[in-house]
């Protein structure tokens, strides 16, 4: 089952605590995730920790899904980092700032696993 979402990215304390420790599994766990509300989790038919594919017209990425009661229905939060940046809007609309928040996309369950940082960055060097 697919679920349409408005994607926002931002800081979290786990992301911040590992910002100088990016090759660690702690950073991966802090950032390769997508937080959604209970209704959206139910729509997807997933349990916390399952993998989802996040897709927008700018790209797609596989991350783990987590429950966040503070999110309105249809709002997906991905901590800032390489995984979030696979799906954000690179256009700055003439002010230097890419579209890191308010990116329309969808979530769907997947059997694929999230790539770790090294594997992810090697794609950028191809």
């Amino acid at each position: 089952m697919k679920c349409d979402v408005n994607i926002i990215t931002g800081r979290t304390i786990d992301q911040g605590a590992n910002i100088d420790n990016k090759l660690s599994s702690d950073y991966f766990n802090a950032c390769a995730r997508c937080e959604i509300g209970a209704e959206d989790l139910e729509t997807l038919g997933l349990l916390e920790g399952s993998h989802v594919k996040v897709s927008t017209k700018f790209g797609s990425v596989v991350v783990s899904v987590a429950l966040c009661d503070g999110n309105m229905r249809g709002v997906a939060f991905i901590p800032m980092g390489p995984w979030a940046n696979a799906v954000v809007n690179p256009d700055t609309h003439g002010c230097g700032m890419p579209g890191f928040k308010g990116v329309l996309g969808s979530l769907e369950p997947t059997d694929e696993k999230p790539l770790d940082l090294k594997a992810f960055m090697s794609l950028c060097r191809e």
């Binding site: 990016k22 090759l23 390489p82 690179p90 950028c124």
Partner: peptide, 25 residues
């Protein structure tokens, strides 16, 4: 780690020098 992937791919195309205490993306 903090630019959209499309920017990062272009950043990676040409020579890049990093000055930093820590290994990162």
């Amino acid at each position: 780690a903090h630019f959209p992937n499309a920017s990062v791919r272009n950043l990676a195309k040409s020579p890049l020098i990093q000055i930093d205490p820590y290994a990162n993306a």
